[in-house]
Simulated scan of single mutants.
Amino acid sequence: MTKQKIDPRVIRTRRLLKQAFIDLMEVRAFDEITVQDISDKATVKRATFYLHYKDKNELMIQYIDETLKDLREKVNVQISFLDNFDYLDQQPHPSFVQLFHQIAENFAFYRALLVTNRIPYLTSGLLEIIHEFVSEGINQIEPSDQNLFAKRDLIIKYVESAFLEVIIWWIENNMHYSEHEMAFQLMTLSIKGPYKNNPLKYRSLSAENDANKKPIN
């Protein structure tokens, strides 16, 4: 079946309404925004708004669904997405880069709905995508539970929660690191942890050496 083409005028009006909604959400709380506010900002009549959405909630939910659908497709969290990738190479996986690239492409949207207003519907939807991304990555890198320090479900929850908060932090700081750097740093942290060398091991060795150097009375 072929998809029915949408009238370009409809596309343009919805784009104006969505942009107006985001512009308002960047400076005001969701509860403070009215349909009239959105219509005025979009320079369309209130009646025109209702031709496309029944209320502001429907506009927001549809916009979030569309954006997350696009993110999921672009990041591509399919079973085969990690095949033949060399994790020893000093490069981030393309899917990691794509994750940050898509967020950067929709920066105003994510800033308005994750930072200025933390909308639970977006947070849970984004976390669901990150969960798929993280769990697939961990399952591909290490399929055996015997080689994990903690329970697999706990590790996945820990990493996905960190991913979400790091993304929010990155947005809050106006994407102060490049997409590539964020992807590489986060991938490295997820696989190796924060330390190049185990600090407890070297602290223990240092303490042992200091003890051996003490003079005997």
Rank of each mutant, 00 (worst) to 15 (best):
M1V: 13
T2E: 15
T2Y: 08
K3M: 10
I6W: 03
I6Y: 05
D7W: 02
P8Y: 00
P8Q: 02
V10Y: 03
V10W: 00
I11M: 09
I11D: 13
R14M: 09
A20Q: 06
F21C: 11
I22K: 11
E26H: 07
V27L: 07
R28T: 05
I33T: 13
T34F: 01
T34M: 03
T34L: 04
I38R: 07
S39I: 06
D40L: 07
K41Q: 15
T43R: 14
T43Y: 15
K45E: 14
K45M: 05
K45Y: 03
A47N: 10
A47D: 14
A47G: 14
T48W: 02
T48Y: 00
L51Q: 15
L51M: 10
Y53R: 06
K56Y: 07
E58L: 05
L59V: 10
Q62E: 15
Q62N: 15
Y63P: 02
I64Y: 03
D65T: 11
L68T: 07
K69F: 10
R72G: 02
R72K: 13
K74I: 01
V75P: 03
V77G: 06
Q78K: 10
S80T: 11
L82C: 10
F85S: 00
D86M: 04
D89N: 10
P92M: 00
P94M: 07
L99T: 09
Q102T: 06
I103K: 01
I103S: 07
I103W: 02
I103R: 12
E105P: 02
F107S: 11
A108P: 02
R111C: 00
A112R: 08
A112S: 14
T116E: 12
N117I: 03
R118S: 12
I119S: 05
L122H: 01
E128W: 05
E128I: 01
E128N: 13
I129Y: 04
I129N: 11
I129H: 07
H131N: 14
V134T: 14
G137P: 03
N139L: 09
Q140K: 14
Q140W: 14
Q140H: 15
E142D: 11
N147M: 08
F149L: 15
R152Q: 08
I155A: 08
I155L: 10
K157R: 10
K157H: 13
S161H: 06
F163D: 09
L164Y: 15
E165H: 12
V166G: 06
W170D: 01
I171M: 04
N173S: 10
M175I: 09
H176W: 06
H176L: 04
Y177P: 00
A183P: 09
A183F: 04
A183N: 05
F184G: 08
Q185R: 12
M187C: 09
T188E: 02
T188C: 05
K192M: 10
P194G: 03
Y195A: 12
K196A: 12
P199M: 08
K201M: 09
Y202M: 09
R203L: 11
R203Y: 05
L205F: 12
A207N: 15
A207W: 04
E208I: 06
N209V: 06
A211S: 14
N212S: 14
K214N: 09
P215I: 01
I216G: 00
